[in-house]
């Protein structure tokens, strides 16, 4: 198990290198000189050159890459070109809202989508199956920001139950924190609920066709035992996989949701950084999410071993 963990960790290194290289090259080769942006419109050529030297931009490109990688490995993510503060501190400041939002959304998702998917598979072709499938295909198709505005219109503006926008930190009391988190979390989970419910159903349908389910029926087990003890555990692996690959959806959802609800999280940070061409922040955030993606998928791989005794590393 430990050996497998280490091997997987080593295998992640080339992946991260590819990510780092693409991010680095993409940002360095694109038009727009960071030194010019920092110096401002009125700067002289000498000023630009000195800024360039200070940033190390006059070095050959591969030297820049290795310096950059070296700094990253030491936890130095650089300094924002715009606010002149450390990128790391900018990120940590924005962490709380994003994490709260993501956790709330995942809780909603699991509570709603897995039971829906199981019931839909069990009663394949019934009205409840059709309903779940319809909700799910609509959930995929309606963009997150449209769902966000519909929820605001209904629950905040028409009914006035919840605040329209904004975020309140957990420090300022659980009540307001939760009230302001409900709509964004529902918005963010919409696409996820659709995805996981659909995957749960598909995976359950697959498993329910297996020979051992027929065996379980042949030995006279009740439907509930068959569904939850025999089928769901076997259907778990593909569902977990989708939660992993769905991470990309989560990221795009976070970016959009934070924009719709004016939440000062990492999603806002990256949009602002892109609009301001703040390279170090963009690089750091993309690397961070890619790293998170790799870690999450590693954890999911390891969790297969818990659900499936056939997998021994």
């Amino acid at each position: 198990m430990l050996g497998y963990f280490i091997r997987r960790l080593l295998a992640a290194i080339p992946v991260m290198l590819v990510v780092a290289l693409s991010v680095f090259l993409l940002l360095r080769l694109s038009p727009g000189d960071p030194a010019v942006i920092i110096a401002g419109d009125m700067a002289s050529a000498e000023q630009v050159a000195s800024i360039r030297a200070a940033l190390g931009l006059d070095q050959p490109i591969y030297t820049q890459f290795f310096i950059w990688i070296g700094n990253m490995l030491q936890g130095d993510f650089g300094t924002s070109l715009i606010s002149q503060t450390s990128v790391l501190s900018m990120i940590t400041q924005r962490l709380e809202p994003t994490i709260s939002l993501a956790i709330a959304a995942i809780v909603f998702t699991v509570l709603i989508s897995v039971p829906l998917g199981v019931i839909a598979a069990w009663r394949q072709g019934s009205w409840i199956d059709n309903l779940v499938m319809s909700i799910s295909v609509v959930g995929f198709s309606v963009p997150v920001f449209v769902i966000g505005y519909v929820l605001i219109q209904v629950f905040a503006i028409e009914l006035g139950w919840l605040p329209v926008q904004g975020y309140r930190s957990l420090e300022n009391g659980v009540g307001e924190f939760a009230r302001r988190l409900v709509l964004p979390a529902l918005t963010l989970s919409s696409v996820y609920i659709a995805l996981i419910a659909r995957m749960t159903r598909a995976s359950m349908l697959e498993v329910l066709k297996e020979d051992y389910i027929r065996t379980a029926r042949a030995k006279g087990l009740g439907e509930r035992l068959i569904l939850f003890r025999h089928a769901l555990r076997n259907a778990g692996v593909p569902i977990l996989t989708v939660i992993g690959t769905g991470f990309a959806l989560m990221v795009s959802g976070v970016v959009v949701t934070e924009s719709v609800f004016n939440i000062p999280g990492l999603g806002r940070l990256i949009v602002d950084a892109v609009l301001a061409r703040d390279y170090p922040v963009i690089q750091a955030l993309i690397l961070l999410t890619a790293g998170l993606y790799v870690v999450i998928n590693l954890l999911i791989d390891l969790s297969y071993a818990i659900t499936d005794p056939r997998i021994r590393y």
Binding site: E210, T215, H230, N234, T307, R310
Partner: peptide, 11 residues
């Protein structure tokens, strides 16, 4: 059943 390999629940 015919297929002993798949007739038992693997987990």
């Amino acid at each position: 059943f015919q297929e002993p390999m798949t007739a038992l629940n693997p987990v």
